[in-house]
């Protein structure tokens, strides 16, 4: 399982890059969902979002998942490319599969680093 060291993680399997403010879902999450066929952003650019607020809905052939904000802040960009190619979340969850970018005002104190998230994932199997 791919867990980049430079990112922070939530228990609901979101990742956030505190440098750029980008967030998405983890490799573990995309694997659980399998073939992703649709992504819908539930926020617009300039929206203010609180930690834990809904930011997107991701659908695969068999499942549906809501994605929550790991940080508070203002939405500065939404990954429009996912509309046509949602499957990049499966192939590149930490790169081209990013969902939303924030100007971060506050981060959750429950965020985990890569080592903690890896231990958390291993504990679930």
């Amino acid at each position: 399982m791919n867990i980049p060291a430079n990112l922070m993680y939530t228990k609901k399997d979101e990742w956030v890059d505190l440098e750029s403010g980008k967030m998405g879902i983890t490799d573990f999450a995309q694997g659980q969902l399998s073939d992703i066929v649709f992504v819908e952003a539930l926020v617009d650019v300039d929206d203010d979002v609180e930690i834990g607020g809904e930011v997107a809905s991701v659908e695969s052939v068999k499942a549906s998942a809501e994605v929550y904000a790991p940080v508070s802040g203002t939405v500065v960009a939404i990954n429009e490319g996912l509309e046509d190619e949602p499957e990049v979340i499966n192939t590149d969850p930490y790169g081209a599969g990013w969902l939303v970018q924030f100007e971060v005002s506050e981060q959750s104190d429950e965020l985990m680093d890569a080592a903690a998230y890896e231990a958390y994932c291993n504990g679930r199997d």
């Binding site: 659908e59 695969s60 052939v61 068999k62 499942a63 549906s64 809501e66």
Partner: peptide
């Protein structure tokens, strides 16, 4: 198809 929209998967959503 598109069954994840439906109640048996999305439940309260």
């Amino acid at each position: 198809t598109l069954t994840p929209r439906e109640q048996h998967i999305k439940r309260e959503r």
